[in-house]
């Protein structure tokens, strides 16, 4: 079975004739008669004029923002996105460090707990003898990095 044609060699000519406002009066007889016989070209002629009108009116009615404004907004948004992209690895590093610190703390606590249980008597005597000194040292170890963190954070 022969396939139905989907394009015609006169299609471009027919389209040009409509877009250049030559259809139907100013086109040659051969093309005019062809369009009347050819369903493809007939459809092209039928819709091309409507597209020309729609295009003209769409272009005329478009309220476009100024090119400089679009460019400026694009620059602004690009900078903001670049800043966000740059901040992403820092956040990832912070999360990784925090997770690592928590892990280390758990390990240390585990070790300390087992050690504490095995040498409970010795610790108790040590706390009684040097309790104040140990409390001061612990406070220093915890407070000093915390203070440094907040100070650097403010900067």
């Amino acid at each position: 079975m022969r396939r139905k044609p989907v394009e015609c060699e006169y299609e471009t000519q027919a389209l040009a004739a409509v877009l250049e406002a030559r259809w139907p009066a100013a086109v040659d007889k051969v093309l005019r008669e062809h369009v009347l016989r050819c369903p493809i070209c007939a459809n092209v002629v039928a819709i091309a004029d409507s597209f020309a009108i729609a295009r003209q009116h769409s272009h005329a009615s478009a309220a476009l923002p100024d090119a400089s404004r679009v460019f400026w907004m694009a620059q602004l948004r690009a900078r903001r996105e670049a800043a966000q992209d740059a901040a992403r690895p820092i956040l990832a590093t912070q999360i990784a460090t925090f997770a690592w610190a928590i892990g280390l703390l758990i390990v240390c606590l585990g070790v300390a707990l087992s050690w504490f249980q095995s040498s409970r008597g010795w610790v108790e005597s040590l706390l009684l003898a040097h309790g104040v000194l140990i409390a001061l040292a612990t406070a220093l170890v915890v407070l000093l990095p915390t203070a440094a963190y907040f100070a650097m954070g403010k900067e």
Partner: peptide
């Protein structure tokens, strides 16, 4: 080509311009 042909035919019919049969 086929898709454009079908879309064009559909639009032409919707615009009320019947195809000219061979």
């Amino acid at each position: 080509k086929t898709m454009l042909f079908r879309a064009r035919r559909k639009l032409a019919i919707l615009l009320g311009r019947k195809e000219i049969k061979r």
